[in-house]
């Protein structure tokens, strides 16, 4: 697993993808930090985290698009699948590599926190809750993106699939009001990434939300493993 993790990390930064992701993440978070925190004369970083939701949904497919599809295209999956490692270790290695690169982006938030702390003490509990929420959101989206990437040999399709899922998840909230069946509405409501994420931004560390994002990760890691299993039997 660590061999794969290491290789994926270096692959992010031998190609421009890792740098582009970080640059875009830093640019937008920096902009929002300036507009919503510095300019407002507040120590509250919550608005920055809320605004980053959309940016994250759009950036994560960039991180995940080549994760699995490229292996298939260049037939390097043959080396991975005939190596003495389990499929779970293979998938987890890739998943963790993407999460780590994502976390490098999120790390800028900590810098913002420190900058604010130079002038006044921010609400650290809320701040760290926000960071945890963003990491969980990212991890869940990465798991979904990785799964989509495993379904195709084409990076572009993987990226577009990732965008489509991300946008749909963001749209869920406007959908719920249109659903008249109450139980169906509550099901869809509970699937909303935005609702669950905004709990974090409001400073609530709800265990059910944490479990929700962790389960999404687990389910899609599992499904990715199944995709590889299925390919062997096809």
């Amino acid at each position: 697993m660590f061999a794969i993790l290491k290789r994926e990390l270096s692959a992010y930064f031998t190609s421009p993808i890792g740098y582009i992701y970080l640059a875009v993440f830093y640019f937008f978070s920096g902009f929002y930090f300036f507009a919503y925190t510095l300019l407002q004369n507040t120590t509250n970083l919550t608005n920055v985290f809320i605004m980053m939701f959309t940016i994250v949904t759009f950036l994560i497919p960039i991180l995940t698009m080549r994760l699995m599809s490229e292996e298939k295209k260049h037939k390097t999956d043959q080396a991975l699948l005939t190596a003495p490692i389990s499929l779970v270790a293979l998938v987890m290695g890739k998943f963790l590599a993407a999460v780590l690169v994502f976390a490098m982006g999120v790390a800028i938030m900590v810098v913002f926190g420190i900058v604010v702390a130079c002038f006044a003490t921010p609400d650290w509990a809320v701040f760290w809750g926000n960071v945890v929420g963003m990491l969980l959101l990212g991890a869940a989206l990465i798991a979904i993106g990785m799964f989509i990437s495993a379904l195709t040999e084409n990076q572009v399709i993987a990226a577009i699939g990732g965008f489509a899922v991300g946008i749909s998840l963001a749209l869920i909230d406007s959908l719920t009001s249109l659903i008249s069946v109450s139980w169906l509405r509550s099901v869809v409501d509970n699937l909303s990434f935005m609702t669950r994420y905004s709990d974090f931004t409001q400073g609530m560390l709800n265990i059910s939300n944490v479990l929700f994002f962790v389960s999404v990760c687990a389910v899609f890691v599992f499904l990715t493993v199944r995709v590889f299993e299925k390919q062997r039997w096809a």
């Binding site: 270096s10 692959a11 260049h74 037939k75």
Partner: peptide
Amino acid sequence: HPPLYLDMTVKDYLGFMYDLKK
């Protein structure tokens, strides 16, 4: 088709495969 990562050097690639094969 040799399963090569085209963006790696021979050294890095063999090092990776070495780790992968434990």
